[in-house]
Computed example of a mutant assay.
Amino acid sequence: MATPLTGSQLLAALRAEGLVLHEVGDWRRHNRNTKGAWGPVNGVVVHHTATEGTDASVNLCYDGRPDLPGPLCHGVIDKAGEVHLVGNGRANHAGLGDRFVLQAVIDEEELPKDRLADTDGNRHFYGFECINLGDGQDPWPEPQLLAIEKAAAALCRAHGWGERSVIGHLEWQPGKIDPHGFPMDTLRERIKSRLSKAPEGPVTSQAAATSDGSVAPDGSVTLAGAGGADGADRADRGEGVGGEADRAAGAGGAGGACRGDVGDEGRPSAVPPMPQHPPYEPFPGGEFFHSGAGGPVIAAMAERLIAEGCDHYRHGPAPDWNEAHRKSYASWQRKLGFHGKDADGIPGRVTWDRLRVPNAQSRPSG
């Protein structure tokens, strides 16, 4: 589960993936939030408009219809592969769908057949409407398919999701056929491949990054949202930062000096004296995280992951290390911009330090 992106964060995430964007009307304040909850968000739903023509389709998705007020999605993707932002918040796009499908999206598992219409999808999903008649004859140009891939991947990066967090309307709500004309499994494979690499970067070159993962004033995505270009934090364990040795070295070994004790801003930093009980739990080493490991460190880690919106705990976190912990931590790694083997769910020192797990001995008791 995750907190929805603000308008600026959404804009920045899409720009960082190399998309051409158009801001329509008052899209940042255009939503249906007065009619129901918005969030926590869990994924992305892809639709086709069943219309033709960019202007007419964008206007329809912004304004809606007499029986279905707009916005009807968050972004409209045209045939040229450009994205028109029409809403920010709850939108009338997903309708009622299957709760078991939602749970599979949260768990990032294979989707069951959608049979129920008992869960409010407008609360839990971002939506992209893609301009296509949906008759099986209207073509899907490659620039449009690429833009769908990029837009979905952008939101996955922003929230630390994998490709299984992207579904078609036909996989969510019984009776729907959209998007018609390409397989969702093929789209997910494309998204998976894209997420294994760093994002392309914004079309404009005015990117300004800060080390704490916030969004810069000019709307550009920073390190956490864009995938991380800072040389000191390129990889959690690999890419020349010591590999598994970085994990094994723990909080004080030679692995910590592999890059000359480089700080978050890429400058050499002095190592201050350690307090008796530091406020954050030191990295225990990657070998600590194995089946059967447990205790206050695992519990405190789970609390922080939930607070960061990286929650794959179906019934709450268990006291011992398990697959739900691994999936939740993998979401955190992806949220920081790591990918491939560097987002396998096994903590490394860089991502652990950024998670800021409270030290069990420094927390008040009782």
Score class of each variant (00 low, 15 high):
S214L: 02
L133A: 08
E287F: 05
G136Q: 07
A293F: 03
A80S: 14
R363H: 06
G175W: 04
G243F: 00
A254P: 08
G53F: 03
S196R: 13
A232H: 08
F338C: 03
C258Q: 14
A293I: 04
D26R: 10
E110N: 14
V215I: 14
N33R: 03
H48I: 15
G348D: 04
G263L: 05
G286Y: 07
E52S: 15
M184A: 02
S365K: 10
R15C: 02
S362E: 11
N92F: 01
T351C: 15
H315W: 10
T222W: 12
V86E: 10
E265Y: 05
Y313M: 08
I167H: 01
G294K: 04
R259Q: 15
I177G: 12
Y280W: 12
G253A: 03
M274H: 11
H124M: 06
K79F: 00
D218K: 05
R99Y: 04
V350G: 09
A248P: 00
A299H: 07
S328K: 05
H48E: 15
H277V: 15
L21R: 05
Q9S: 07
H290C: 13
C156D: 04
D78E: 13
G294D: 04
W172Y: 11
G127L: 03
Q144L: 01
W172F: 15
A147F: 00
G64M: 14
L146M: 12
A154R: 00
A251I: 06
M301K: 07
S269V: 13
D138K: 01
L96F: 14
G7D: 09
G348V: 06
V83R: 05
P317V: 09
S214Q: 09
H277P: 00
Y62V: 01
G295Y: 09
M184C: 04
D236W: 01
N92R: 00
G250T: 03
E308P: 02
G18Q: 00
G316E: 04
G95D: 02
C156G: 09
K35D: 15
T34K: 14
V262Q: 15
